[in-house]
Amino acid sequence: MSKLEQVLILDPPNDLRFKGPFTDVVTATLKLKNPSDRRVCFKVKTTAPRRYCVRPNSGVIDAGASVTISVMLQPFDYDPNEKSKHKFMVQTMYAPPTITDTEAMWKDAKPDELMDSKLRCVFELPSE
């Protein structure tokens, strides 16, 4: 199956780092840059949807524009034996000329129209 290469430039590109202690909300920022000359729709997905609050969790990025996303890790009891296996995925597609129903647009998208990038979460403790 042929797959489109991710058009957006992610910063950071591979890892989302969260600094402990995790007694309060910890925010990591993810920058999405659209270097193309077309509008790009994006959607953020995660393997642990209840642990994170993501703003915005979807949207449209104009040609040449950037969007900064806040990924807020909710407070939890950190267990040093449990290294995080959480992952994020940024799914994107080129925006159609008109968007009337975002949900339908994603649902009707063909697999070869979708692009995605995956990021791994890294938990850092101050003592480490």
Partner: peptide
């Protein structure tokens, strides 16, 4: 591998 994970839509409200 990374591709074997199940991904869900991220929520914007906690």
């Amino acid at each position: 591998a990374l591709s074997e994970d199940e991904f869900y839509d991220a929520v914007s409200e906690s």
